[in-house]
Design a protein around this nucleic acid. Structure first.
Lengths: 338, 338
DNA sequence: CGCGTCTATCGAAACGTTTCGACTACGGGC
DNA sequence: GCCCGTAGTCGAAACGTTTCGATAGACGCG
């Protein structure tokens, strides 16, 4: 495998000239550069990563810590991992994957051995020990999600409260006077991530601000229980005519089936909005209006912030990404009460 | 950040002594080692990864290439990624994640810059360009899955044909005389991975060997269509009393619902076996007998084989992992024909 | 007492870059 | 004619390890 000395010899220059020609950090004569380019191609030269890391002060690697356990990993997790990896490549960074059982030890290891230049933290929970660790390590880092104590940290996340509020506004603006939110299974609210709560709180607060009665119900991820929960909600008084769903893909499908099974039409009898899913609701029958959670949005920004920390100090902050509404025709004015 | 020179100075020895003390590659005097250990703790020393890579000939990093696109990533993919990362750590290896759109370029990049010691290839498809690339790179590698042309490659995979045959045997041994397989959506068989076909072929072949009529039907991932496909199969003549399902989790659930909805009991009216899922079927209602696909099995072995290639030549091979059957009571003798 | 054989340790080279400082040659401004 | 700045190039140091070969002392043995 060719190294920089080989290239220098073939091109008839010194190695520093080769280095500068490749990095462009100093001007190089036209024909010299051509000879060097030629030699590089001829030898199929590619700089050795270890040499580079050692001499430069960058490894061009980020650690990505995702609390992945095979039992709790949804397709959404994967989408985030993917989005981080893709965003990192845009800055010529690679991604080293750390798993759940290595969460803190792994972070400690790769950062104090200087294997990585920074850390991206995924799926941050309210009481996340990785948040404290990152703070104490003092390494460039960006969290995707907001921990209980975000002091001194750089965090990025979708504005879940605003997303829920946006859903409420849409429904109320369309004329609905009674709303409901079907949420994740109870376990999700108890352990871990705080975004389901933020969505729920945003929903209830805005409904109250708008003076509209609203109920919230948690739903297990299982078709019969979905149906039961849905019917329970729809039979309330006053019966909700606007529904927001914040749940897994399977639950959405089960809800649509149950709605159809009950002889209700969307949006004729019931207006429905899907809240912050990572999957595509436009292929559902019927397609659902949606306020999507786009992993690429938060992840790109997080990587960007991590990169900035490499040669400048970045003020700690919580950046909330504004939600967007996508209309697919599942919201309409409520049918007149008889 | 302390380096090996600092440790040497504090311990009052030379750096080579420190290195040998830490690696254990040469004998070190008792009290010298104690002084070194003490210095290491005192300074919180951790060897610099880049220096190590450069001097040693190992980077202690594997590349993991997974053809992940956010649109096609199932929880199963994640389970494999996870299993590889976990297995790698057992050998003190870290995992660098390469994504779909970087598949070949990324592999080329990380291997010719010597950033990784080897490559683990996930979710190999029949006509996988990564297989050819790995062959031509001549880098230690292990594929999980079997490409069309496996020549010169080290591959590991579950023995899907044997798994299907095992399912057939169980049902036939229990007395069933007509079987059916509900498989993945058609698209899965057309594009990509070959394991669904291998499972299907194993099923049909063993059924034919056992002289039992068997039908195969592809099922879209959508509850109404699942029901339709199921009923279509059950209404065949002779009506199958033994059913094998090779599909996503949601499809399994939809099938169980549809079976119940039709007033059929498991295993009273219908015996059901789940074929090579990565999810847990013991919590279904009713729990299903299963021949599980355990990501950790193949992944651990693949990592092991990659590690072996680092300092020995490993003969190219396709290693098929033997399937195991787990009984949860969803198979019984068929009810007597009236 | 001299020799070989250990054990424990050291010094120095090597890994492959990047980057700093120095040098030459050249052109322009005064 | 001198001074300065700039383009283009080179040599050497530095990054932090691992590992080879050498050396010094201890020990047993003839």
């Amino acid at each position: 495998m060719a190294n920089i000395h080989d290239v220098a010899r073939v091109a008839g220059v010194s190695i520093s000239t080769v280095s500068y020609a490749l990095s462009g950090k100093r001007p190089i004569g036209e024909k010299t550069r051509l000879r060097i380019d030629q030699a590089v191609r001829e030898l199929d030269y590619m700089p050795n990563a270890a040499g580079r890391m050692l001499a430069g002060t960058r490894t061009r690697i980020f650690a990505l810590t995702a609390p992945l356990r095979s039992d709790t990993s949804t397709p959404a997790h994967m989408a985030f991992v993917l989005a981080v990896a893709t965003a990192a490549r845009k800055y010529d960074y690679d991604v080293l994957l750390l798993t759940e059982d290595e969460a803190t030890d792994g972070l400690r290891r790769v950062s104090s051995s200087r294997l990585v230049d920074g850390i991206i933290v995924l799926d941050v929970s309210l009481n996340d020990e990785r948040a404290d660790l990152v703070r104490s390590l003092g390494v460039p880092a960006a969290l995707i999600g907001v921990p209980g104590n975000a002091e001194g940290l750089v965090c990025v996340d979708l504005d879940f409260e605003a997303a829920a509020a946006l859903a409420v506004d849409r429904l109320v603006d369309a004329g609905h006077t009674s709303l409901a939110l079907l949420g994740h299974p109870q376990a999700v609210y108890e352990r871990g991530s705080n975004f389901p709560m933020r969505f729920r709180d945003g929903f209830l607060r805005r409904a109250s601000e708008r003076g509209v009665p609203a109920r919230f119900s948690m739903v297990e991820n299982d078709a019969p229980q979905v149906r039961e929960a849905l019917f329970g909600v729809l039979d309330a008084d006053p019966a909700p005519t606007g529904l927001v769903v914040h749940a897994e893909e399977g639950v959405h499908k089960a809800i649509l089936e149950a709605v159809a099974g009950r002889g209700l039409s969307i949006p004729g009898d019931l207006s429905v909005i899907a809240g912050v899913p990572t999957f595509d609701t436009s292929t559902f029958t019927p397609p659902l209006d949606v306020i999507p959670l786009v992993p690429a949005d938060s992840c790109t920004r997080a990587v960007e912030l991590a990169v900035q920390q490499l040669d400048a100090t970045v003020e700690p902050r919580v950046e909330l990404v504004a939600p967007k509404y996508r209309d697919h025709g599942s919201v309409a004015a409520p049918r007149r009460r008889l």
